[in-house]
């Protein structure tokens, strides 16, 4: 179980690796050959945030009251402290407490 390497999973990981490397090397290669307009750059910059929000939205829409409140608490703590550790720690405590209460 610990050292298990499923050939299919390895293939998926390899594909992820290639997809990532293409983007890392692509910028070096592309520029000078193709011009990225500032418009396209602004679109690329927004992508990570937009993807994260896209994962969260349906999850929260379909979530329980406990999930909503706990997510709200994580949001506030992350915003105030900028610390992943404190945010996640508070989040776990919050979800356990809320599930016990609600």
């Amino acid at each position: 179980m610990m050292g298990e390497l499923d050939p299919f999973v390895v293939a998926v990981i390899a594909a992820m690796g290639v997809a990532t490397y293409v983007t890392k090397a692509g910028g070096l290669w592309l520029l000078g050959r193709v011009d990225l307009s500032p418009r396209v750059e602004s679109g690329l910059e927004i992508l990570p945030g937009a993807i994260i929000v896209s994962i969260l939205a349906p999850e929260l829409i379909g979530g329980t009251l406990a999930t909503w409140i706990a997510a709200g608490i994580v949001f506030l703590v992350a915003w105030r402290t900028d610390s992943i550790t404190i945010s996640l720690g508070t989040g776990v405590v919050a979800i356990l407490a809320l599930r016990a209460m609600l």
Partner: peptide
Amino acid sequence: PIPVAVVVGTVFVVNLRYLLMGASLRPWFE
């Protein structure tokens, strides 16, 4: 089962910002 196309596609799209980072290195890296 693993949604291969979505996993690889999402990884690619999230990483598209690396295009900009790689491009910004070019004046030195060329």
